[in-house]
Computed example of a mutant assay.
Amino acid sequence: MRILVVEDDNILREATVSILSGEDYIVDQASTGDEGLYLAEQGIHDLIVLDIMLPGISGLEIVKNLRKNGCAISILLLTAKDSVDDRVIGLESGADDYLVKPFAMRELLARIKALIRRKGNLIIEDQINYGNLSLNSKIKDGFVNEEPLGLTNKEYEILEFLTLNKEQIVTREQIFDRIWGLDSDTSSTIVDIYIHHLRKKLIVYGLDTLIQTVRGVGFMLKES
Rank of each mutant, 00 (worst) to 15 (best):
S137C: 15
S224C: 12
Y98G: 08
K101C: 10
I169V: 11
L47S: 09
V49C: 06
Y194K: 03
E14G: 08
T152I: 02
I112C: 00
S188R: 10
F176K: 01
I195Q: 06
I179W: 03
Q42F: 09
I211V: 11
E147M: 12
C71T: 13
F219W: 15
G90K: 03
E157L: 01
I62K: 03
K119Y: 14
D85Y: 11
I128N: 02
K101I: 08
E41R: 15
V217L: 12
I73K: 02
D86I: 00
K68Y: 12
I128Q: 07
D126Q: 10
L151M: 08
D85Q: 15
V27C: 03
R106V: 11
D82C: 07
V191M: 07
L207G: 07
L4S: 07
G90E: 00
R67E: 09
I211F: 08
Y38D: 13
Y156T: 05
S31D: 15
D34G: 01
Q127A: 10
F176S: 02
L221F: 06
E61S: 10
G33E: 02
L47I: 08
D185A: 15
R111K: 11
G218K: 00
D183K: 14
V100I: 11
F176R: 00
I73F: 03
E147D: 12
G131I: 02
E160M: 08
Q29T: 06
T213E: 13
S224H: 14
R2K: 14
E125I: 02
L12R: 10
I175W: 01
L78Q: 09
G206W: 05
K64T: 10
L66A: 03
V204L: 08
E35A: 15
I169F: 04
R2A: 10
G43K: 04
L4I: 06
A72G: 12
I26W: 12
D9I: 04
I3V: 14
S93Q: 05
I75A: 07
I175E: 05
D86P: 06
T209M: 10
I128M: 08
N121I: 15
